[in-house]
Amino acid sequence: MSSSLQFYLALLLVYAGVDLIACWGLNLQMGIGGIVNFGFVLFQAAGAYTYAILTLGAPAHNAGAGAGFQTYFWGARLPFPLPFVGAIVVGGLLSVVVGLLVLPRLRGDYQAIALLVVSLVASGLILNDASIFNGANGLSSIPRPLEAALGLSGLGYSWAYVGFTGVLCILSGWVVWQISRSPLGRVLRAVREDEEAAKSLGKNPRRLRLIAFVGGGMLAGLSGAVLVAYIDAWAPSSWGYVETFVFVTAVIVGGFGSNVGVAVGVVLVPIVFGEAPLFLPSLVQASWFGAVQLILFGLFTMGFLWVRPQGVRPERRVKYAGRIKKLGASVAVAGDGAGRAGERGGTQ
């Protein structure tokens, strides 16, 4: 395999990992917690910027050095893995602030729009005030973690980074899986289904929604850090609202609420169909690439919501019949009256 192809492949795998972590976070909010977050990319951006300023060093001190051409409000040079931890923490803290502002007051579409607006306001702010994160030019020359310490070749480092991304994916997957299958995951789904009913059973939807929102925000922050540490630059154009819709499409196509489904969605949407237009140069002009991508994502969302709203691999039904059989020989006792329930029920 040529080295340029290997570089491309490594980049694609890092993208896949980043998208996977982000989409699992979005699924925790949207699929499991029922919070449609159209401002999701803001939390990824928060993680990316946090990683950048925690690795670039103080802006005043490095004037004239490699990164001295850019302005940002504050910076430090923390050792690995602290910048990643910082990105997770900032993603979480920002989610607490935004969550407390938006979640208790708004529901459904209004909530989604409010979150979209929050991300647009933040983007506008950073774009127009260059003293925060260097405005439209963004931050660049962001150091890669342990690049000097490892002393690998460019390609070797790329593959090592793919491995690092893989490990973070496994850890993130473990966290979302533990939450998803636990009583916490079940109560989150209950709030998603009917908030009033959950309240009537003594559950506190405010607390539960905030848990889902902050958990998703922390994963978004991590995904931003993993991305920016590899591509070493980050600007407002990297996190347009369009990016959020790529994630939303991936979750819808893969399967709302299903962590495995979301992984399928990530492979299908940003990777296979996001990259496919690249290989069809005869069909479209290169300048159309972005537009064709967006059209594909839009068609995907509409098509799936129309034909298969549960996604490629829907949320799994947790079955208890087997466990119950173990519980009771009393199944036979129930049998005399169970016919009534069975008339309509049955299994699908």
Partner: peptide, 15 residues
């Protein structure tokens, strides 16, 4: 106000 997308058993366990 059942949790329509959850099974009967899950509805009970939530409570």
């Amino acid at each position: 106000a059942e949790f329509a997308g959850l099974t009967v058993m899950q509805n009970l366990l939530v409570a």
